[in-house]
Design a protein around this nucleic acid. Structure first.
Length: 879
DNA sequence: CAAGTCACG
DNA sequence: ACGTACGTGACTTGT
């Protein structure tokens, strides 16, 4: 059966406008509604794969139905300017895509949609009508599906309605939707309805009487007095509303089906318009411009021949700027090297005389002569090659530059950089490889070399564009002096790894297994049956339904069994305490005992990966395994730190910044009271308690201090009364009083946080002391929750981010000092405010000295930093 | 592959 | 009125 998709143009544009954060292109044109519209449109078309497609719009001239309404109540609300200016743009785009625009003077889009959909159905087609307007539900039928996109946080979800779905959700037939609307009214659609009747009453009336006229005929029987009287008094209004709500399916509009037949939307004109609007992500939908792509690919040259390689390398020596990429396969085996000069990119296959050693030495030489070199993901390449100390300053990593320019992306593949900074569409790695893997490709396979060449090519050509942007945003020194040097410190840390004792781990695993088994049995006994305790779904049913334990709160696909909910119930119900214990032990076993064991290498050490381009705030993250979340808060968990050992006969030296985030806050805000406290060694939580609770410093109780500590945390997180009240299990009002009291004591902190939010709202981003930026698109959201989230981000990010910057600088300095002084000591871990070093015993004093100097030497704030240093024969002892 | 939970700063 | 603390990653279930 053939299918036609019809879109309600204004309605979807409107949806998109309010659902997508404000976007503007460099001409200053607002583009968010057009962008959102196209996204919804593509999604629908991808799903439906229709044979015909058209979009309906209202014309400016007032329609009959408008007139009727305007007689009743003046004019419609004018459209917002930012949205209004996007209407011609989307029409231009659709025209460029050769999509017919359905418009007819004197008729609304609804009428055209209704007319065409009904006609299509009568002609034996399947019709799909897309609108944000529930009014359209009256059109639903067996072969007419109404699709209503809803913008949710995880993207757009689409509700689908055929006859059955309407009846299920509204208890009335599609045609009766008209009656429903007429009774309850619809402010967004300018239907007055009748006063005092809402969804519930309207549904009841229609379910019982079928239509308004019939209800009126039986008006004396209507039960709720209010509804009866309202219907009696406003019957004329109800009739008018009904007329307003009725879509005219007999308009004289006729759609030319040949024009509506689906053709390639991705025309050159549409592509150009997308470029102008700067819809970078959308460009990938267009057939990749073959000529452009071929031009790039033609500059690629491949060899496995020694003589040829020599010739090309000689040629490359003349280049001042080079791009390079050492290609490895999925198992980290080296496969070849790509090097780009201004005009050409050469790929040297690892084969025959072109050994790994030969090629990397060749690269070393090229780096000697080149003035600057660019690559992508330098740290990964350093698993089998390290640039000489003397050339490190010449090398830049394009992925890191891209991360600084937009830290929210998560991934920085070359094709994205080519698109964003070179306006060039390149085939991505997955596109090139398809289902095959690099390790299965022959040396001379074109795809193998292409993967390497595109990386090298993009790195070289995108870098100048990115550098210019970094400079314009004052992040060039962040890039050159912080992020690039850090690559080497992180690489060294990964290479060193950290020694871990598999024996101890196994021993713990055994003990934990026993505990798990024991708790399991006790829980089954208490529950009266066996079930999977790890399943929140099953657990919720057992606790809150079978055992009827009260106080089950939150839901969303079941009961919440999160720790903070269960903790409140634990004292009263032994089974709950056991579940909590079980969870803790199970977590320790699976994630740490078994999890860590699987990462211990043949050298007896764990070599995790530190990521420099992941977090939104500038922190480093750690995976495979995550070494930044090794337990410490409970004793049972903390014991795992005994597993982490320094090299034989060496020791650990661990240094952590104390209260780094609060010190940063004090410094950035310039709050005198806080600065004074830090400079005079006053306990910060006690001081806060004394201020917030109006208690002399020496009379602050432990409880007050604990609460004040939560307040301080709250401040750093972007305070909200609700969050604080949750954490402290107090009323929102009390929490609010704490906060007010806090801000009264530290006025400059309030100023600072307010300024952060205002700044972020104005500029669209917030920055750290060292100019690292984080965009805050949430602040432009019309959704309250999203916007509040944006405000908290704006308050937290400069604090968390500046602290992250500080320890990054510290790492670079410490790492450098250790090498300068030719110590054997080396960094093995970074845990956000903590550095862990392993060192021969005799180096301890020197290392302590260096840590002290370098960690404290980074900043020159009104508040000085403070560190705690400890040493020990395992991580447990040293921290 | 998403949701829920929980380990860390 | 709306419904939450900020930043991560790993493991388990269940669709």
């Amino acid at each position: 059966m053939e299918k036609i998709v019809l879109i309600d143009g204004h309605s979807i544009l409107n949806r998109a406008y309010y659902g997508v954060p404000d976007l503007t292109n460099s001409e200053g044109l607002h583009t968010n509604a057009v962008y959102g519209f196209l996204n919804i449109m593509f999604k629908i078309l991808d799903e439906e794969k229709p044979d015909y497609f058209a979009v309906a719009f209202d014309l400016k001239a007032p329609t009959f139905r408008h007139k009727l309404y305007e007689q009743y109540k003046g004019t419609r609300k004018p459209m917002q300017e930012e949205l209004r200016q996007q209407v011609p743009v989307i029409k231009e785009m659709l025209t460029a895509m050769k999509v017919p625009l359905m418009m007819l003077e004197g008729y609304e889009a609804d009428d055209l949609l209704g007319t065409v959909a009904k006609k299509a159905e009568a002609d034996g087609l399947e019709a799909v009508v897309v609108s944000g307007d529930r009014d359209l539900l009256q059109l639903a039928a067996d072969h007419i599906m109404i699709r209503i996109p809803k913008t949710k946080k995880g993207g757009t979800e689409i509700e689908n309605y055929r006859t059955e779905d309407v009846m299920e959700k509204y208890q009335v037939t599609p045609i009766q939707i008209i009656e429903l609307k007429a009774l309850m009214g619809d402010s967004s659609d300018n239907i007055p309805g009748i006063p005092g009747v809402g969804e519930k009453t309207a549904t009841k009336l229609i379910v019982e009487y079928g239509c308004i006229e019939n209800a009126y005929a039986h008006v004396e029987e209507i039960k709720p007095n209010k509804a009866r009287e309202s219907l009696r008094d406003h019957y004329d209004m109800a009739q008018m509303s009904k007329e307003l709500a009725t879509i005219n399916i007999h308009s004289p509009f006729e759609l030319d089906m040949e024009q509506a037949r689906m053709t390639d939307l991705y025309t050159k004109e549409a592509f150009e318009l997308c470029k102008r609007l700067e819809f970078k992500n959308m460009l990938s939908r267009f057939e990749i411009d073959q000529s452009e792509q071929n031009q790039v690919a033609e500059s690629f040259h491949v060899t496995s021949d020694l003589q040829q390689a020599g010739e090309w390398l000689g040629q490359l020596k003349e280049e001042k700027q080079i791009g390079f990429f050492l290609l490895s396969d999925e198992e980290k085996a080296f496969r070849g090297m790509a090097v780009s000069g201004a005009n050409d990119t050469f790929f040297f296959c690892k084969q025959g005389f072109l050994t790994e050693g030969y090629l990397t030495s060749a690269l070393d030489e090229l780096l000697q002569t080149a003035e600057q070199a660019v690559t992508i993901q330098l740290k990964e390449q350093m698993h089998f090659w390290k640039p000489a100390e003397s050339v490190r300053k010449k090398i830049r990593d394009a992925a890191i530059a891209a991360y600084l320019l937009n830290p929210l992306k998560g991934e920085y593949p070359y094709e994205d950089m080519a698109k964003d900074y070179l306006a060039t569409m390149l085939p991505g790695k997955t596109e090139l490889l398809g289902k095959s893997k690099i390790k299965d490709l022959d040396e001379e396979d074109k795809i193998l070399s292409a993967v390497g060449c595109y990386q090298s090519y993009t790195a070289l050509h995108a870098m100048p564009v990115m550098l210019e942007k970094l400079k314009a945003e004052e992040m060039d020194s962040l890039f050159e002096e912080m992020e690039m040097p850090l690559v080497y410190a992180l690489s060294a840390m990964e290479k060193a790894g950290i020694r871990a004792d598999a024996g101890i781990l196994k021993e713990y695993a055994g003990e934990l297994s026993e505990k798990i088994h024991q708790l399991e049995q006790e829980i089954y006994t208490d529950a009266g049956e066996e079930f999977n305790i790890n399943s929140p779904k099953q657990l919720g049913l057992i606790l809150f339904e079978k055992l009827q334990i009260p106080g089950s709160k939150k839901t969303k696909s079941g009961y919440s069994t999160a720790a903070d909910i269960l903790e409140n119930l634990a004292p009263e119900y032994p089974i709950i305490q056991k579940v909590l214990d079980y969870r803790q032990v199970a977590k320790l076993k699976s994630t740490y005992a078994d999890g860590l064991a699987s990462f211990i290498g043949e050298d007896g050490r764990i070599h995790g990966t530190f990521h420099q381009t992941v977090t939104a705030t500038g922190r480093i993250s750690s995976t495979d395994p995550n070494l930044q979340n090794i337990p410490i808060r409970t004793e049972m968990g903390r014991l795992f730190r005994k597993v982490f050992l320094p090299k034989e006969n060496w020791i650990f030296i661990d240094a952590d910044y104390s209260q780094i985030e609060l010190r940063v806050l004090a410094a950035l805000s310039g709050d005198e009271a806080l600065i004074h406290a830090f400079q005079n060694g006053i306990d910060i939580h006690t001081l806060t308690a004394s201020q917030v609770f109006h208690t002399p410093l020496d009379q602050v109780t432990p409880l007050q201090r604990r609460n004040a500590k939560a307040v301080n945390f709250g401040i750093v997180y972007g305070i909200s009364a609700f969050g604080l009240s949750q954490d402290l299990k107090i009323s929102r009002k009390e929490a609010s009083e704490y906060i007010d009291s806090y801000f009264a004591s530290y006025p400059k902190i309030k100023e600072f946080l307010d300024r952060a939010v205002a700044d972020a709202k104005e500029k669209g981003y917030i920055a750290t002391y060292y100019h690292r930026r984080r965009p805050v698109p949430e602040l432009a959201s019309s959704n309250f929750m999203q916007r509040s989230f944006g405000e908290r981000i704006a308050m937290n990010s400069p604090i968390q981010g500046t602290a992250a910057d500080i320890i990054k600088l510290a790492m670079i300095r410490v790492d450098q000092r250790l090498r300068e002084e030719q110590l054997q000591a080396r960094l093995v871990l970074q845990v956000h405010d903590e550095l862990l070093i392993e060192a021969p015993k005799e180096e301890e004093a020197r290392v302590r000295e260096i840590l002290h100097q370098e960690m404290l030497g980074v900043t020159d704030f009104a508040v000085s930093m403070e560190i705690d240093i400890q040493s020990g024969s395992d991580w447990y002892e040293a921290h």
